[in-house]
Structures are given as C-alpha cells and as structure tokens.
C-alpha cells in the first residue's frame, strides 16, 4: 500500500510544513503569498519534471539553467531584433531548447561522455552562446526595451478563480498564474507519456536495467536522447514563461537553476539509481523547496541562508535515497 504511494510521505511533509509556516508567520497563509509561491515556483516545477527524465535514465542535466537562458535570449532576439510575431518566435525558441537538449543526449550516447561532464561542458557552451547571441549586447539600445509582443505578453496573466467560481464573495482566493496552468498541462502530458506510452516504459526500463532493456530490444541510445530532449523542451517552455514574466531576457537568466531542479527531482523520489520516478514527485519537491524558502524569508531569514538550506536539503535527500537503497539491498539478502 505504502509502496504504491511513494509520494505519500512527501505530501505529509509538505502539508506539515505548510501548516507550520501558516501558524508561525502572519502573511504565509494569505492569497497574495500563495500567488507568490505559485508564480515563483511553477516554472521551477516544470524544470524539475524535465530534469526527472535524464535522472530516470541514470543521467543528469547540469545545463538546464543555461538552456533556459539560451531559450529566453533567442526569444528576446526574435522579438526585438527580427521583429517576429509571437506565434512564430515562441515555437522557434522552444524548438531551439529541445535541440540543445538533444545535443546533450548525443554527447552522452554517441561520444559516450559521462552525463555530468557532457552537461557541465554544455552548461558553459550554452551560456557562452547566450552572450554571443545577446541582442542586448549587439544593440545596446535594446537593453532597456521590453518585449511588447501581444502573444508573449498574453502568457503572463492570472486566472481569478475566485471571480470565476463566484466564491470571491465569501473568501479571497489566490488567482492562478498562467505559469501554474502551464505546469498543469506539462504535468498531465508528462504523466501520460510516462505511464501510458511505450516511451515512458522504455525510459524506466533503460534506467532500471540497461542490460535488460538491450536484451528486450529497447534502443538504449534513442531513449536516452529522448530523455535529454524532453528536458530541453521543458527548459524551452520555462524560457518563454520567464520572458513573459519579466518582459526581457538577460545574459544571467536561468543561472544556478540546475541545483534546485536536481534537488526537487531527488526529493520527489526520482532516485539517482535510475528507473523510477513520477511526475507528481518532482512537482511536490519543487513546491516543498518553495514553501521552505519563502516561509523562511517571511520569518526573516536571508537569501544566503536559503542557498545553504537548498544545498543541505539536497544532501539530506541523497542521503535518504542511499539509506532506502541500502535497506532494499539488505532485504533482498545477497552478497556479491
């Protein structure tokens, strides 16, 4: 019973922390703050879902933040330099990120590089590309201009569910940011792919037992490439959402996000041994990090401490992962 609901413990922890912060800080349990959490961490949750794919195949994508920066800068350029309308520039940017993800996959499968080396190298290479194509640097006058394209701007809105349902007369409900709706779409799609298609099974098979996958005729390489591509796709979606939010892109967009996304995925039960993971887990993991960090901010803890905490939480999560895997090993009772 417990095994089937591996996110159950996580959910309990989530609710407990939520209750804790609601009780100890005044503004935590308020509509504006919940809006803040939702709009601040929805895109992190999307990235965590993306990061889950390579981890599921025993890999890792350290370049995810640089990839977000790349997508954002391409979108900015297409809008400000080439004056492309949003209906064209948005798909182009997302495709570019997916291709960048594909490059990671090719480095890992074709050149047989260790995932972390390959993606550490592309972390630098993608960030370098961001600087190289930055319209803000090529045309300094663009640096202060914002993106005004209606297609892009329309992606930054709020859905006032209080008004929509008529409940606003009784209680102030948080409005749902568009990025949260995007997260829901990504989550549903990813869940279907992971659980209802052969591709999803192949991802888990390749990560869970590559030898068995090979024997069963599953293409290990192709599956790995798809995993990195999916991760890049999520980075592209987030890049668009971030440009819509800030109406601009900087050379630093997305810096340091790899850490949080890996932490969220590992907390969400995507084990580094590969082969298992859900979509709900990384999303819960991302929001768990979100409420901890925002809750602590409300309690007056500095952003630097948050950085320390993120690291500590990641350490705790891998340690927990190690303990459970040790327990499984001793339960199955074999010696080498």
């Amino acid at each position: 019973m417990f095994k089937r609901h591996q996110n159950f413990a996580l959910l309990i922890l989530f609710l407990a922390l939520f209750a804790f912060f609601s009780f100890f800080t005044r503004r935590f349990f308020s509509a504006p703050n919940i809006e803040d959490i939702l709009s601040g961490y929805s895109f992190m949750a999307i990235l965590a879902v993306g990061q889950a794919f390579p981890i599921m195949t025993r890999g890792l994508d350290l370049s995810i933040g640089s990839n977000v920066g790349l997508g954002a800068m391409i979108l900015f350029d297409l809008d400000k330099v080439f004056h492309l309308p949003g209906w064209a520039s948005i798909p182009i940017s997302v495709t570019a990120c997916a291709l960048a993800g594909c490059v990671n996959g090719l480095l890992v499968t074709q050149l047989k590089l260790q995932p972390f080396v390959a993606t550490l190298a592309t972390l630098a290479a993608f960030r370098g590309t961001v600087y190289a194509v930055s319209g803000r640097q090529l045309y300094p006058e663009l640096a202060t201009q914002s993106v005004k394209d209606p297609w892009i701007r329309s992606l930054e809105g709020f859905l006032d569910i209080g008004h929509l349902t008529g409940l606003s007369r009784f209680v102030r409900l948080p409005s749902l940011p568009f990025s949260f709706l995007a997260l829901l779409v990504v989550a549903v799609l990813a869940h279907v792919v992971l659980n209802r298609t052969r591709l999803g099974l192949n991802l888990k098979t390749v990560g869970g037992n590559p030898e068995a996958a090979h024997l069963a005729g599953v293409s290990v390489r192709r599956t790995q490439i798809v995993a990195y591509l999916a991760c890049g796709l999520c980075a592209g979606i987030v890049a668009v959402l971030l440009v819509a939010r800030f109406t601009t892109a900087t050379e630093a967009t997305g810096t340091g996000m790899e850490l949080t996304t890996i932490a969220a995925a590992v907390i969400g039960g995507v084990t580094l041994r590969g082969g298992s993971g859900t979509v709900a887990g990384p999303i819960l993991g991302a929001f768990l990090l979100g409420i901890i960090l925002i809750g602590l901010t409300l309690m007056g803890i500095s952003q630097f401490t948050q950085q320390i905490l993120t690291g500590a939480i990641l350490l705790g999560a891998v340690y927990y992962d190690r303990l459970t895997s040790d327990r499984q090993k001793s339960a199955s009772g074999g010696v080498a």
Binding site: L201, K204, T205, G207, G208, N209, A212, A213, G275, S276
Partner: peptide, 8 residues
C-alpha cells in the same frame, strides 16, 4: 542476475 526492471 535478474534481467527484470525492479521499478516496473
């Protein structure tokens, strides 16, 4: 050695 995928 098992050729099964434990998580499936």
């Amino acid at each position: 050695h098992s050729s099964l995928v434990p998580s499936l």
